[in-house]
Design a protein around this nucleic acid. Sequence first.
DNA 1: TCGTTTGTTCGATAAAAATGGAACTAAGCC
DNA 2: GGCTTAGTTCCATTTTTATCGAACAAACGA
Lengths: 119, 119
Amino acid sequence: MARDEIGFSHPDEETLSLEAIFHALSDPYRLRIVQALAASAAPMNCGDLSFGRPKSSMSHHFRILRAAGVLHTTSQGVEHMNSLRRAALDRRFPGLMAAILGETGHPAAAPAARGLAPA
Amino acid sequence: MARDEIGFSHPDEETLSLEAIFHALSDPYRLRIVQALAASAAPMNCGDLSFGRPKSSMSHHFRILRAAGVLHTTSQGVEHMNSLRRAALDRRFPGLMAAILGETGHPAAAPAARGLAPA
DNA sequence: TCGTTTGTTCGATAAAAATGGAACTAAGCC
DNA sequence: GGCTTAGTTCCATTTTTATCGAACAAACGA
Protein backbone atom coordinates (compact mmCIF):
# COMPACT_ATOMS: atom_id res chain seq x y z
CA MET A 1 0.00 0.00 0.00
CA ALA A 2 1.78 3.09 -1.20
CA ARG A 3 1.23 6.21 0.83
CA ASP A 4 1.80 9.24 -1.33
CA GLU A 5 3.66 12.06 0.39
CA ILE A 6 1.19 13.22 3.03
CA GLY A 7 -1.76 11.97 1.12
CA PHE A 8 -3.93 9.06 0.22
CA SER A 9 -3.13 5.42 0.29
CA HIS A 10 -3.37 3.59 -2.97
CA PRO A 11 -2.97 -0.16 -3.35
CA ASP A 12 0.16 -1.49 -4.95
CA GLU A 13 -0.25 -2.47 -8.53
CA GLU A 14 0.38 -6.16 -7.84
CA THR A 15 -2.50 -6.38 -5.40
CA LEU A 16 -5.19 -5.02 -7.69
CA SER A 17 -8.03 -7.53 -7.96
CA LEU A 18 -10.71 -7.95 -10.55
CA GLU A 19 -13.23 -8.45 -7.79
CA ALA A 20 -12.51 -5.10 -6.15
CA ILE A 21 -12.40 -3.33 -9.49
CA PHE A 22 -15.74 -4.80 -10.49
CA HIS A 23 -17.30 -3.84 -7.21
CA ALA A 24 -15.98 -0.33 -7.63
CA LEU A 25 -17.41 -0.05 -11.12
CA SER A 26 -20.79 -1.55 -10.30
CA ASP A 27 -22.08 1.75 -8.97
CA PRO A 28 -23.48 4.24 -11.50
CA TYR A 29 -21.79 7.29 -10.02
CA ARG A 30 -18.47 5.55 -9.78
CA LEU A 31 -18.70 4.37 -13.34
CA ARG A 32 -19.47 7.91 -14.45
CA ILE A 33 -16.46 9.20 -12.56
CA VAL A 34 -14.24 6.75 -14.39
CA GLN A 35 -15.74 7.59 -17.75
CA ALA A 36 -15.40 11.31 -17.11
CA LEU A 37 -11.77 10.92 -16.12
CA ALA A 38 -11.04 8.82 -19.16
CA ALA A 39 -12.58 11.45 -21.38
CA SER A 40 -10.58 14.21 -19.76
CA ALA A 41 -7.00 14.92 -20.67
CA ALA A 42 -6.24 16.43 -17.27
CA PRO A 43 -6.92 15.22 -13.72
CA MET A 44 -10.15 16.48 -12.21
CA ASN A 45 -11.02 17.56 -8.69
CA CYS A 46 -13.78 15.97 -6.64
CA GLY A 47 -16.21 18.81 -7.07
CA ASP A 48 -16.11 18.50 -10.82
CA LEU A 49 -16.90 14.81 -10.50
CA SER A 50 -19.73 15.06 -7.99
CA PHE A 51 -22.70 15.21 -10.33
CA GLY A 52 -24.58 17.35 -7.86
CA ARG A 53 -24.52 14.75 -5.11
CA PRO A 54 -23.61 15.51 -1.48
CA LYS A 55 -19.92 15.73 -0.75
CA SER A 56 -19.97 13.04 1.91
CA SER A 57 -21.59 10.58 -0.44
CA MET A 58 -19.13 11.28 -3.21
CA SER A 59 -16.19 11.14 -0.85
CA HIS A 60 -17.30 7.61 -0.07
CA HIS A 61 -17.32 6.73 -3.77
CA PHE A 62 -13.88 8.23 -4.30
CA ARG A 63 -12.55 6.17 -1.47
CA ILE A 64 -13.85 2.96 -2.98
CA LEU A 65 -12.41 3.79 -6.36
CA ARG A 66 -9.07 4.56 -4.73
CA ALA A 67 -9.13 1.38 -2.69
CA ALA A 68 -9.79 -0.65 -5.81
CA GLY A 69 -6.80 0.97 -7.46
CA VAL A 70 -8.86 2.55 -10.18
CA LEU A 71 -8.17 6.11 -9.15
CA HIS A 72 -5.15 8.04 -8.02
CA THR A 73 -5.60 11.14 -5.89
CA THR A 74 -3.15 13.83 -4.92
CA SER A 75 -3.52 17.06 -3.01
CA GLN A 76 -2.90 20.27 -4.84
CA GLY A 77 -3.64 23.20 -2.61
CA VAL A 78 -7.15 22.84 -1.28
CA GLU A 79 -8.29 20.45 -3.91
CA HIS A 80 -7.82 16.77 -4.51
CA MET A 81 -6.91 15.93 -8.03
CA ASN A 82 -8.03 12.58 -9.38
CA SER A 83 -6.80 10.59 -12.32
CA LEU A 84 -7.25 7.09 -13.62
CA ARG A 85 -4.49 4.64 -12.78
CA ARG A 86 -4.55 3.66 -16.38
CA ALA A 87 -0.99 2.44 -16.77
CA ALA A 88 -1.17 0.18 -13.73
CA LEU A 89 -4.55 -1.17 -14.76
CA ASP A 90 -3.33 -1.80 -18.28
CA ARG A 91 -0.31 -3.70 -17.06
CA ARG A 92 -2.28 -5.79 -14.65
CA PHE A 93 -5.39 -6.39 -16.75
CA PRO A 94 -4.50 -5.63 -20.34
CA GLY A 95 -7.46 -4.57 -22.40
CA LEU A 96 -9.84 -4.22 -19.48
CA MET A 97 -10.07 -0.46 -19.35
CA ALA A 98 -10.08 -0.22 -23.13
CA ALA A 99 -13.08 -2.54 -23.22
CA ILE A 100 -14.89 -0.68 -20.46
CA LEU A 101 -14.32 2.65 -22.13
CA GLY A 102 -15.25 1.34 -25.53
CA GLU A 103 -11.86 1.78 -27.08
CA THR A 104 -11.41 -0.88 -29.71
CA GLY A 105 -9.24 -1.24 -32.75
CA HIS A 106 -12.24 -0.54 -34.92
CA PRO A 107 -13.57 3.00 -34.51
CA ALA A 108 -17.06 1.77 -35.40
CA ALA A 109 -17.12 -0.92 -32.78
CA ALA A 110 -18.00 -1.06 -29.10
CA PRO A 111 -21.20 0.93 -29.31
CA ALA A 112 -22.47 0.00 -25.90
CA ALA A 113 -19.40 0.87 -23.92
CA ARG A 114 -19.40 4.29 -25.53
CA GLY A 115 -22.97 4.95 -24.59
CA LEU A 116 -24.23 4.89 -28.15
CA ALA A 117 -27.27 3.06 -29.36
CA PRO A 118 -26.45 -0.34 -30.80
CA ALA A 119 -26.68 -0.65 -34.57
CA MET B 1 -36.30 -10.29 -22.25
CA ALA B 2 -36.11 -13.56 -24.13
CA ARG B 3 -37.84 -16.50 -22.52
CA ASP B 4 -36.26 -19.69 -23.73
CA GLU B 5 -38.75 -22.43 -24.48
CA ILE B 6 -40.11 -23.32 -21.06
CA GLY B 7 -37.09 -22.06 -19.29
CA PHE B 8 -35.20 -19.13 -17.93
CA SER B 9 -35.43 -15.53 -18.91
CA HIS B 10 -32.30 -13.96 -20.23
CA PRO B 11 -31.95 -10.28 -21.04
CA ASP B 12 -31.79 -9.24 -24.65
CA GLU B 13 -28.33 -8.53 -25.91
CA GLU B 14 -29.05 -4.83 -26.44
CA THR B 15 -29.99 -4.28 -22.83
CA LEU B 16 -26.83 -5.68 -21.29
CA SER B 17 -25.24 -3.07 -19.06
CA LEU B 18 -21.71 -2.73 -17.79
CA GLU B 19 -23.09 -1.88 -14.38
CA ALA B 20 -25.05 -5.12 -14.04
CA ILE B 21 -22.18 -7.15 -15.44
CA PHE B 22 -19.76 -5.60 -12.97
CA HIS B 23 -22.08 -6.21 -10.10
CA ALA B 24 -22.47 -9.82 -11.19
CA LEU B 25 -18.72 -10.30 -11.36
CA SER B 26 -17.94 -8.57 -8.08
CA ASP B 27 -18.72 -11.69 -6.09
CA PRO B 28 -15.97 -14.29 -5.71
CA TYR B 29 -18.18 -17.30 -6.38
CA ARG B 30 -19.75 -15.71 -9.39
CA LEU B 31 -16.37 -14.80 -10.81
CA ARG B 32 -15.22 -18.38 -10.33
CA ILE B 33 -18.29 -19.66 -12.12
CA VAL B 34 -17.49 -17.48 -15.10
CA GLN B 35 -13.86 -18.52 -15.12
CA ALA B 36 -14.76 -22.19 -14.87
CA LEU B 37 -17.21 -21.90 -17.73
CA ALA B 38 -14.68 -20.08 -19.85
CA ALA B 39 -12.14 -22.81 -19.22
CA SER B 40 -14.61 -25.52 -20.10
CA ALA B 41 -15.38 -26.47 -23.65
CA ALA B 42 -18.84 -27.76 -22.76
CA PRO B 43 -21.68 -26.23 -20.74
CA MET B 44 -21.71 -27.19 -17.08
CA ASN B 45 -24.55 -27.95 -14.71
CA CYS B 46 -25.11 -26.08 -11.47
CA GLY B 47 -23.80 -28.81 -9.24
CA ASP B 48 -20.45 -28.81 -10.98
CA LEU B 49 -20.22 -25.07 -10.42
CA SER B 50 -21.26 -24.98 -6.78
CA PHE B 51 -17.85 -25.17 -5.10
CA GLY B 52 -19.36 -27.03 -2.17
CA ARG B 53 -21.75 -24.25 -1.22
CA PRO B 54 -25.45 -24.79 -0.46
CA LYS B 55 -27.71 -25.10 -3.46
CA SER B 56 -29.95 -22.23 -2.47
CA SER B 57 -27.00 -19.89 -2.20
CA MET B 58 -25.63 -20.88 -5.56
CA SER B 59 -29.03 -20.69 -7.19
CA HIS B 60 -29.08 -17.07 -6.12
CA HIS B 61 -25.70 -16.47 -7.77
CA PHE B 62 -26.79 -18.17 -10.97
CA ARG B 63 -29.82 -15.97 -11.10
CA ILE B 64 -27.73 -12.82 -10.84
CA LEU B 65 -25.33 -13.98 -13.53
CA ARG B 66 -28.29 -14.81 -15.76
CA ALA B 67 -29.98 -11.46 -15.10
CA ALA B 68 -26.77 -9.66 -15.99
CA GLY B 69 -26.66 -11.54 -19.27
CA VAL B 70 -23.39 -13.23 -18.45
CA LEU B 71 -24.80 -16.74 -18.35
CA HIS B 72 -27.21 -18.72 -20.44
CA THR B 73 -29.09 -21.60 -18.87
CA THR B 74 -31.16 -24.32 -20.43
CA SER B 75 -32.88 -27.37 -19.04
CA GLN B 76 -31.65 -30.76 -20.12
CA GLY B 77 -33.47 -33.46 -18.29
CA VAL B 78 -33.12 -32.86 -14.58
CA GLU B 79 -30.14 -30.60 -14.87
CA HIS B 80 -29.65 -27.00 -15.84
CA MET B 81 -26.82 -26.48 -18.26
CA ASN B 82 -24.96 -23.20 -18.08
CA SER B 83 -22.75 -21.53 -20.60
CA LEU B 84 -21.21 -18.11 -21.02
CA ARG B 85 -23.03 -15.74 -23.35
CA ARG B 86 -19.72 -15.05 -24.90
CA ALA B 87 -20.86 -14.04 -28.38
CA ALA B 88 -23.40 -11.54 -27.09
CA LEU B 89 -20.94 -10.12 -24.59
CA ASP B 90 -18.28 -9.83 -27.24
CA ARG B 91 -20.57 -8.00 -29.60
CA ARG B 92 -21.80 -5.62 -26.97
CA PHE B 93 -18.54 -5.04 -25.09
CA PRO B 94 -15.71 -6.13 -27.37
CA GLY B 95 -12.64 -7.22 -25.50
CA LEU B 96 -14.26 -7.20 -22.09
CA MET B 97 -14.45 -10.93 -21.53
CA ALA B 98 -11.06 -11.47 -23.11
CA ALA B 99 -9.56 -9.01 -20.64
CA ILE B 100 -11.37 -10.54 -17.69
CA LEU B 101 -10.28 -14.03 -18.63
CA GLY B 102 -6.74 -12.94 -19.36
CA GLU B 103 -6.83 -13.69 -23.04
CA THR B 104 -4.50 -11.30 -24.79
CA GLY B 105 -2.67 -11.33 -28.06
CA HIS B 106 0.57 -12.00 -26.23
CA PRO B 107 0.58 -15.41 -24.55
CA ALA B 108 2.93 -14.09 -21.90
CA ALA B 109 0.73 -11.17 -20.95
CA ALA B 110 -2.22 -10.70 -18.58
CA PRO B 111 -0.73 -12.53 -15.65
CA ALA B 112 -3.22 -11.26 -13.12
CA ALA B 113 -6.38 -12.14 -14.94
CA ARG B 114 -5.11 -15.67 -15.37
CA GLY B 115 -4.47 -16.05 -11.70
CA LEU B 116 -0.71 -16.24 -12.06
CA ALA B 117 1.75 -14.38 -9.94
CA PRO B 118 2.87 -11.14 -11.53
CA ALA B 119 6.39 -11.11 -12.92
C1' DT C 1 -46.85 -44.42 -8.49
C1' DC C 2 -43.02 -43.88 -5.61
C1' DG C 3 -38.45 -42.48 -4.90
C1' DT C 4 -34.32 -39.99 -6.64
C1' DT C 5 -31.84 -36.31 -8.53
C1' DT C 6 -31.29 -31.43 -9.70
C1' DG C 7 -32.23 -27.06 -8.94
C1' DT C 8 -35.60 -23.20 -7.72
C1' DT C 9 -38.43 -20.51 -4.51
C1' DC C 10 -39.66 -18.95 0.02
C1' DG C 11 -38.66 -16.76 4.19
C1' DA C 12 -35.98 -15.30 7.97
C1' DT C 13 -31.54 -13.45 9.42
C1' DA C 14 -27.23 -11.46 8.99
C1' DA C 15 -23.82 -8.73 6.71
C1' DA C 16 -22.47 -5.16 3.66
C1' DA C 17 -23.21 -0.78 1.15
C1' DA C 18 -25.13 3.57 0.19
C1' DT C 19 -26.83 8.01 1.85
C1' DG C 20 -26.38 12.46 3.74
C1' DG C 21 -26.18 15.91 7.66
C1' DA C 22 -22.91 17.73 10.92
C1' DA C 23 -18.52 18.39 12.65
C1' DC C 24 -13.84 18.56 11.43
C1' DT C 25 -9.22 19.26 8.87
C1' DA C 26 -5.96 21.26 5.60
C1' DA C 27 -4.59 24.98 2.62
C1' DG C 28 -4.80 29.34 1.14
C1' DC C 29 -6.11 34.34 1.40
C1' DC C 30 -7.21 38.67 3.74
C1' DG D 1 -6.16 35.41 13.68
C1' DG D 2 -10.41 35.03 11.04
C1' DC D 3 -12.67 33.61 6.82
C1' DT D 4 -13.36 30.67 2.75
C1' DT D 5 -12.96 26.62 -0.04
C1' DA D 6 -12.51 21.63 -0.79
C1' DG D 7 -12.91 17.27 1.01
C1' DT D 8 -12.83 13.99 4.67
C1' DT D 9 -14.55 11.66 8.79
C1' DC D 10 -18.14 10.46 11.93
C1' DC D 11 -22.47 8.64 12.76
C1' DA D 12 -27.12 7.09 12.29
C1' DT D 13 -30.38 5.43 8.93
C1' DT D 14 -31.87 3.04 5.05
C1' DT D 15 -31.31 -0.05 1.33
C1' DT D 16 -29.33 -3.85 -0.85
C1' DT D 17 -27.06 -8.35 -0.77
C1' DA D 18 -25.72 -12.64 0.86
C1' DT D 19 -26.66 -16.92 3.32
C1' DC D 20 -28.93 -21.11 3.95
C1' DG D 21 -32.61 -24.34 5.81
C1' DA D 22 -36.99 -25.96 4.39
C1' DA D 23 -40.53 -26.67 1.24
C1' DC D 24 -41.47 -27.15 -3.55
C1' DA D 25 -41.25 -28.46 -8.68
C1' DA D 26 -39.77 -30.90 -12.86
C1' DA D 27 -37.78 -34.84 -15.10
C1' DC D 28 -36.58 -39.34 -14.96
C1' DG D 29 -36.24 -44.42 -13.70
C1' DA D 30 -37.74 -48.57 -11.34
